[in-house]
Amino acid sequence: MSPNGFPDLPVRVRTYLDAHARHDVPTAADCFVPAAVVVDDGRTHRGRDAVRAWLDRTSTEYTYTTTPLTAVPHDDRHWTVTQRLDGDFPGGTVDLAHAFTLDDDGRITELTIAPCG
């Protein structure tokens, strides 16, 4: 089983989650298409350079651990993965839904991260 706890996830989603948890920005960024869009914390990041900058910031801004909660396939291209983050950020604990959209080759085209509930 992969460190993210979801062995049935598409390979790029699994690779992204594992790499992000290890703060491996180059590997995580390579999971996205060049024109990818990431929406997180009320901000939209467009293009691989902006996504890489977002990954750099989110990998170092706080110290946290992740616990996999659910992984729901909506179809071959759309997955929602929910993880619990515990760390030194405001509030200390949050459950986040990661909504992934993939292209025909399984690369991430869109990722929207939002608190659950």
Rank of each mutant, 00 (worst) to 15 (best):
D95N: 14
A71F: 03
R48T: 02
L96Y: 08
L102D: 04
T58R: 06
V72L: 14
L85A: 13
Q83L: 13
R77Y: 03
V39W: 08
D103P: 03
D49M: 11
T80A: 05
R46C: 04
G42D: 02
D86S: 14
R52V: 01
V72D: 10
W79K: 05
T67D: 14
V51S: 02
V39M: 10
V51A: 04
G91R: 15
L102W: 04
L55Q: 04
G47L: 07
T101W: 00
F100E: 04
D103N: 07
D105V: 03
W54R: 07
T82M: 05
T67L: 15
T65D: 13
D76T: 05
L85H: 14
A99M: 11
R43Q: 09
W54T: 03
V39D: 05
T66Y: 00
H98E: 03
H74C: 03
R84Q: 14
D86T: 15
R57T: 09
D105Y: 08
R57E: 11
L69H: 10
Y64I: 01
D105T: 11
R48K: 12
H98T: 04
G92N: 08
L102G: 01
D95F: 00
T80C: 06
W79Q: 02
T63G: 14
L102A: 00
A53W: 02
T101K: 06
T66L: 09
A71E: 02
D88L: 12
S59H: 07
T65C: 12
D86Q: 14
D40H: 09
F100N: 04
Q83W: 06
T80L: 02
A71L: 04
A97H: 07
D41T: 05
H45I: 00
D86N: 15
V81E: 01
A53L: 05
G47A: 03
R84A: 10
H45Y: 10
